[in-house]
């Protein structure tokens, strides 16, 4: 009996204050908190002992940008084009539109990675690159100080494109195209050869700007196309000076300009008066009016001129202006 009471005493009675304290106190660990609202814990502390082992995140080193000196050579840090990397760029960038709150920072920001960046081409880097390239360049010739001189000494303009590829093949079929531009007035012509040249060249001549543009792409390489273009330029020029036998068969309908002597107009006038055109008074100004009218195209002005000249020719009173 005393054993039981001793056991009871040991387990229950002596521990009673402890247990009572545990029962009545706020937490299993009693702290010195004044003003703390006591929360009732119905579960005992043991139940809380078995919690899942938390996933230990791997240790991540602090970002490299923290170690970067402020006067570093940025060109060495970011030598080439690269997607944005937040730990490497020491700027506190933010991007993103959040209706409430601040834009998200650079870490795990897809927007900053999406947009193109020119971190590899900052002004000092560009200067350095230019300085490096300078030794491969020669100075601009002093004699070509303005555009006109350039055009005078270098009338031909050769345009070609080169392409870089990072695919299995480094060649691009578009690289073979060669364009040559030059001004028509730089070539020497007389009237007939100029007309022939323009007919040969056709659409390639732009009458508004005065430039002839020859585009060649029929050969597989650029060099061949260039040679062909040069050949074309030479051939066209010489051909236009050549006079063929059949050119004499050029009829009135082929004429690009209106020449009064060859035309019906002269014949009509002669028939009308029954004399040769030289003998008819006023025929010259009439001829001029007709030539202008035909060559420059119809307009109120040329028509009016024509009308006036006809009136003079036929001896009719001039047009009255009634206001």
């Amino acid at each position: 009996m005393s054993v039981i009471t001793r056991i009871l005493d040991k387990n229950v009675v002596k521990q009673l204050p402890k247990r009572a304290a545990a029962y009545y106190s706020n937490k299993p660990n009693i702290e010195e908190d004044i003003g703390e609202f006591r929360v009732l814990y119905l579960k005992t502390s043991k139940a809380q002992a078995f919690t899942k082992k938390k996933y230990q995140k791997p240790e991540v080193l602090p970002p490299r940008s923290n170690e970067m000196p402020v006067d570093q050579n940025w060109g060495n840090v970011w030598p080439g084009p690269r997607t944005f990397h937040p730990a490497t760029v020491p700027l506190p960038l933010r991007q993103g539109y959040v209706s409430k709150g601040s834009p998200p920072d650079k870490y795990a920001n897809a927007e900053l990675m999406k947009i193109p960046n020119f971190l590899h081409l900052t002004p000092p880097v560009i200067e350095r690159q230019c300085a490096a390239l300078k030794k491969f360049c020669t100075p601009w010739p002093k004699a070509l100080s303005n555009d006109e001189l350039c055009e005078k000494h270098f009338p031909f303009e050769v345009i070609s494109s080169n392409y870089c590829h990072s695919s299995p093949s480094i060649r691009d079929p578009m690289a073979r195209i060669v364009t040559i531009k030059f001004k028509l007035n730089d070539l020497k012509f007389d009237e007939k050869s100029r007309d022939k040249y323009l007919r040969l060249v056709g659409d390639r001549y732009n009458s508004e700007t005065g430039y002839v543009t020859i585009v060649t792409d029929r050969c597989p390489t650029q060099k061949q196309n260039y040679d062909y273009a040069m050949y074309l330029v030479t051939a066209l020029y010489h051909e236009s000076w050549n006079v063929e036998a059949w050119e004499e068969l050029k009829t009135e309908a082929d004429m690009e300009k209106y020449i009064w002597e060859n035309n019906e107009s002269k014949k009509s006038v002669e028939k009308l008066f029954g004399k040769n055109s030289e003998d008819i008074a006023e025929s010259k100004q009439y001829a001029n009016a007709v030539i202008n009218f035909m060559n420059e195209g119809e307009s109120d002005y040329t028509l009016a001129n024509y009308g006036d000249s006809v009136r003079i020719l036929l001896g009719l009173p001039a047009k009255t202006n009634v206001l």
Binding site: N263, E264, S265, S268, V269, L272, Y286, V290, D300, L303, A304, Y306, G307, V310, R311, L313, L314, L316, L323
Partner: peptide, 17 residues
Amino acid sequence: EHLDPFIPVAVNEYTDK
């Protein structure tokens, strides 16, 4: 060519008057 030389007479829009 059939009519040449003829006297063209312009008929314009109404003047103010």
